[in-house]
């Protein structure tokens, strides 16, 4: 776990400075009419693409921003052009 991430504010920094915020799963679903099953799928279920995925990271030891990167968990590297946003 020694890779680096590109914070949209601070640039490329060591991963120690960040907190993982999980895969991108879309905004919080509207509560009206939300079934328990749908809710738990949104909270708990993840697809494992086995390749690059969109992720949330928090720059806690830096600027304090939540941002998304596209990263390949197989190599731990950010995917080109998948930087912060």
């Amino acid at each position: 776990m020694t890779f680096r991430l590109t914070c949209p504010v601070c640039g490329k920094r060591d991963v120690y400075e960040f907190t993982f915020g999980g895969q991108e799963r879309g905004p919080r679903p509207a509560q009206e009419g939300l079934s328990a099953g749908e809710h738990f799928r949104w909270v708990q279920f993840r697809l494992i693409p086995g390749g690059p995925q969109r992720e949330w990271w928090y720059h806690g030891q830096g600027c304090g921003v939540w941002f998304r990167v596209t990263r390949d968990p197989a190599t731990n590297r950010e995917v080109e052009g998948g930087g912060g946003g």
Binding site: Q31, E32, A36, H39, F40, V43
Partner: peptide, 14 residues
């Protein structure tokens, strides 16, 4: 409250 999308509310209901 069902409009604020309170964190935890759907789970509490379930």
């Amino acid at each position: 409250d069902t409009v604020s999308k309170k964190v935890g509310a759907p789970a509490l209901r379930a």
